[in-house]
Design a protein around this nucleic acid. Structure first.
Length: 951
RNA sequence: GCCGAGAUGGUGGAAUUGGUAGACACGUCGGACUUAAAAUCCGAUUGCCUUUAAAAGCAGUGCGGGUUCGAGUCCCGCUCUCGGUACCA
């Protein structure tokens, strides 16, 4: 296919130019651009740090072996357009990129092949970088970081030591160095002090049950387990007690929640974080155990229903179960506990529907009614939430009611539901009944009263609980940061800062040991130190590197400190962060937590890292579906094919033809296999009788609807790719990829080219190139400008078209409405293509508007125009629009009758109200609709319309 | 179940504060250019209906109500799709 314009030559040329000029370098305080750098030319005599900064950040990519997919460049293109726009507006823009390169795939490849993960990682980074660079993004590559390089992970380890050497002081509500920790009087011995301190560090060791994934051979954080399966790979996860490093994120739960108010993120994303943190207010209530000297504390959000608590439930793992269980219930309890512990997380969730439990034989005393209530254990009570024990109020809690009905436990209504609703099973706010001194009180008042009573009588207190759990921070992997920790006599010690970076040992085999120890344990020489101490063999999770990378960009080469104070002060915080929702709770919560710790310790100057955050929507693939009866995929079968219309789809079940014949789904990829006939019906090219159903869903190999950016780039070029990614629709929405849509914007770029370039000379060039392909670049410089391009004074009409475009593009970029900004560029080109005289002054300004969107083409045309004092558009001042050019002499003013458009009147824009009313009423067209009717009202909306209400 | 986002032509989408619904693009149809095709350029393109034509009318933004001179936009009640989450006491 003939190219619309020689993007294959233009794009590499400008990418090489930007590289050699270091066009997009950002300058730290005290750094100076060279005199001939376009930054220096634009900002004469100004220190870089005197300028307003703009830090615009993309989410940290994992350089996978599969390379870039079309989803990656979506956010990158959006940020690049804004980076280029802000640069032209005069801001000092920081726009970096780097690699979150530790991770499972390289390690799993290493286990299979023995190739060092470093090598795989390097290859993948090289490939990723090449792909990203081919899109012409304006990154400052001098700040590129890679989490797997010692110069980087030295500081990841250093930050871990900051956490290790800090504790959370509830009095100040801040992280503080451990030396501010004061020991209570009874803690005297060194041993006791040490233990006391170790229990309070922000990084601590725990032996609690963890999510163990046998398939991956590692533990996972709660956030990495979805529906009882690993988020990566979907392997089963079981609970298993193991010694693990934990980070005390729960201490920051309230601040993580509160500070959401100070940042500019989407409501839905904030809501996801709020749900994950899961704050609930209520009371801790103490129940005495009957006949045993023990107390059980429960957490409840409905202390007002305490009079209705007719039994208690402990989680099977609760520490008091042994002490409580009566002799005759012992075997039943042990059996139940055994069964519960063997259940995987998946089984626990899947079997959630049916409640199970056993009676312990013990009774507790309801602190307010003094009533004896039975104590049960059941796995619907989680050991990890609250106190691991509940008071059951079956009348006002769905789960308790279900359990009570199954085991025939008493149910007592203590809240009356409002106006005629059923009180049994009512969980909302009502009025307390059968509740002694609470009778007649509304739910919120009753809560207050009972908590006061509990506190006065020493039987409970006001309590706040969070769903958020501490962050499990160790992994049994090779390809991650080793912990800067050694063990001596069963106790952990931190390495000194001077010992960093601690490099991982070289191994021949990356599998865990036969004993199930992490792979690092294989490196005996590395693990065992001369003085008898041993190294920690766990490694940090991938999040360690991605929790702070945005800080390293500020000062990527600094080997004295993780970021210099001056750079941090100037650049932080991130003005705009763009990425997918998949990081809503994981990365974004962890990073905020680390940042707060660093803030408390005085290492950073802001309490939140990302001021504004925008989520890009997913890009979906398009495929076409039909069905056939070859359900066993037999290659020799005689296959019957059916369109979707003949298929009955049962919910999750097998799909069958309407007559019951079993069938299987098949997909055809849009681009290759489908022929469009007359209008809307899509058919299979090989089976023309078969009508296909259009399906839009997540791109995946099995659907065959994955779009490879390299193929698109090859055919249409980077500018077209960038433009299409943004033209598809609003950034935040999910949208389907259409290859035909790419052709649309590609044709637009062709029209831009032909607006400036003489078609005859381009045709001559194309002919000449076929004869001498190696001369292409030289001959390209001989192209002539379009003969209509001249030095004429622009007409009013031309200025109007130009300034309308400036206004629309500027407003839309400010609002991140890239799709409509691009359509405004198209409108300009459609108009300008008709002009017989195309004033240079107008055409030059248009290239400035085009530059953020299609920078290669804009730069190239600008060079050909030859009117620029400096040789790159990157630092040209962004054009301003003149309102006066947009004013029209006359406008077609719409006239409505009863809200329906009935005609127009031609008026001057500033025509007074009365005049408009008059003209509207007199208008012939309008008369038709209002004569013989009673005039009720006339509304004139300035600059909009006039509406006549009649009856 | 709960929380969040969304539903507009054949398709992606536009309409920024309640003010001309369908910008821009894809696709389709027609025309020009061409020996022909591709590319390019020009025109038409929400549906229905009347008309030789010009031109008009009616309906129309998931569904049902409401507020208003006027509703894609606001309010009430639903349906469906997508994302998150789920025995969280």
């Amino acid at each position: 296919m003939r190219r619309q314009y020689p993007f294959h030559l233009i794009e590499p040329k400008w990418q090489a130019y930007w590289d050699s000029q270091e066009t997009f370098r950002a300058f730290n305080p005290s750094e100076q651009p060279a005199e001939d750098h376009p930054f220096a030319i634009r900002h004469k005599n100004k220190e870089p740090e005197a300028l307003e900064k703009y830090y615009i950040l993309d989410m940290f990519p994992y350089p996978s072996g599969a390379g870039l997919h079309v989803g990656h460049p979506e956010g990158y293109t959006a940020t690049d357009m804004l980076a280029r726009y802000q640069r032209m507006k005069g801001k000092h823009v920081l726009h970096p990129m780097g690699w979150d390169a530790f991770g499972l795939p390289a390690e799993q490849y290493a286990i299979k092949t023995g190739q060092h993960p470093r090598q795989t990682t390097e290859e993948n980074v090289t490939n990723f970088k090449r792909q990203i660079k081919s899109l012409g993004f304006s990154y400052d590559w001098s700040r590129e970081v890679n989490t797997t390089e010692p110069g980087y992970f030295k500081w990841s380890q250093w930050i871990f030591l900051q956490l290790y050497n800090s504790w959370f002081n509830p009095a100040t509500n801040k992280a503080e160095p451990v030396d501010t920790l004061e020991f209570p009087e009874e803690v005297i011995s060194e041993e006791a002090k040490r233990e006391y301190l170790d229990e309070r560090r922000l990084a601590y060791v725990s032996n609690a049950p963890v999510n163990w994934c046998p398939e991956l051979g590692t533990v996972l954080a709660n956030e990495e387990v979805v529906d009882g399966k690993s988020e990566v790979g979907g392997h089963p996860v079981v609970r298993k007690p193991m010694r693990q490093w934990m980070l005390r994120i729960t201490a920051f739960a309230q601040r993580l929640l509160d500070d959401l108010e100070t940042i500019d993120w989407s409501d839905s994303l904030k809501e996801m974080q709020r749900n994950w943190i899961g704050r609930s207010e209520g009371a801790g209530v103490l129940f005495k155990v009957h006949g045993v000297d023990e107390e059980i504390e429960v957490f409840t959000t409905r202390p007002d229903t305490l009079f209705g608590a007719t039994y208690m439930v402990l989680s099977p793992e609760h520490e008091l179960v042994d002490a409580l269980t009566s002799k005759d219930q012992l075997s039943a309890v042990n059996e139940y506990r055994d069964a519960a512990s063997r259940k995987s997380d998946l089984e626990r969730t899947e079997l959630a529907k049916d409640k199970t439990g056993v009676f312990t034989g013990a009774f507790a005393v309801n602190p307010v009614s003094e009533e004896k209530v039975p104590i049960w254990i059941a796995d619907y009570v989680l050991s990890t939430y609250g106190t691991g024990a509940i008071m059951a109020v079956p009348a006002h809690d769905e789960r308790d009611l279900e359990f009570a009905q199954k085991f025939e436990l008493p149910v007592r209504v203590v809240v009356e539901a409002p106006d005629g609703q059923e009180s049994l099973g009512f969980t909302g706010a009502g009025v307390s009944v059968e509740s002694g001194f609470l009778n007649g009180l509304g739910t919120s008042e009753a809560k207050k009263r009972i908590i006061d009573w509990l506190e006065e009588n020493g039987k409970g207190k006001r309590t706040i609980n969070f769903k958020l759990r501490d962050w499990l921070f160790s992994r049994q992997r090779y390809w991650g940061e080793p912990f800067p920790i050694i063990w001596r006599d069963g106790r952990h010690e931190a390495l000194q800062e001077s010992d960093l970076p601690l490099l991982p040992p070289e191994l021949d085999d990356y599998k865990p040991t036969v004993e199930g120890e992490p792979p690092l344990a294989r490196a005996v020489d590395w693990v065992n130190l001369a003085d008898g101490a041993t190294r920690e063999t766990n490694t940090m999770p991938q999040w360690a590197g991605s929790c702070w990378y945005y800080l390293r960009y500020l000062d990527a080469q600094n080997d004295e400190y993780f970021v210099s104070e001056s750079a941090e002060n100037y650049w932080m915080n991130v003005d705009l962060y763009v990425g997918g929702t998949e990081h809503a709770v994981l990365h974004l919560l962890y990073a905020r937590f680390w940042h707060k710790v660093m803030y408390d310790l005085g290492h950073v100057s802001t309490s939140e890292p990302f001021q504004r955050l925008v989520n890009q929507g997913m890009i979906l693939g398009e495929s076409f579906r039909f069905y056939d009866d070859n359900i066993d995929d037999d290659p020799n079968a005689e296959v019957k094919r059916y369109p979707s219309g003949q298929i009955k789809i049962c919910e999750d079940g097998p799909r069958t033809k309407n007559d019951g014949t079993p069938v299987k789904e098949r997909w055809v990829q849009a681009a290759e296999m489908v022929e469009e006939t007359n209008s809307t019906v899509v058919r299979h090219s090989s089976f023309p009788g078969l009508e296909l159903e259009r399906v839009v869903e997540k791109m995946s190999k099995s659907r065959g609807n994955v779009v490879n950016p390299e193929v698109v780039l090859e055919e249409y070029g980077a500018d077209a790719f960038r433009l299409y990614e943004m033209f598809m629709g609003p950034l935040e929405m999910m949208k389907p990829w259409s290859t035909q849509g790419v052709e649309g914007v590609y044709r637009f770029l062709g029209r831009v080219w032909r607006l400036y370039i003489d078609e005859g000379s381009y045709r001559d060039y194309e002919q000449a190139v076929t004869a001498a392909p190696d001369q292409a670049e030289v001959m390209l410089s001989d192209l002539k400008l379009h003969p209509a391009v001249d030095d004429s004074e622009p007409t009013d009409e031309q200025l109007k078209v130009l300034h309308a475009a400036i206004k629309k593009v500027t407003d839309d970029l400010d609002g991140m409405r890239f799709n409509t900004a691009i359509s405004a560029l198209m409108v300009f080109v459609n108009e300008a293509s008709k002009w017989e005289s195309r004033p240079r002054s107008v055409l030059n300004v248009f290239l400035e508007l085009l530059n953020p969107f299609a920078p290669h083409l804009a730069e190239d045309l600008s060079e050909r125009m030859g009117d620029r004092p400096s040789n790159t558009l990157a630092y040209q001042p962004w054009p301003k629009y003149e309102e006066s050019y947009l004013v029209e002499d006359t406008v077609e003013f719409p006239v409505q009758v009863n809200g329906k458009l009935r005609g127009h009147i031609t008026i001057a824009p500033d025509t007074p109200k009365e005049e408009i009313e008059n003209l509207a009423l007199k208008s012939e067209k309008i008369q038709k609709f209002i004569s013989e009717k009673e005039l009720k009202k006339i509304i004139v909306v300035p600059n909009r319309l006039v509406n006549i209400a009649v009856k």
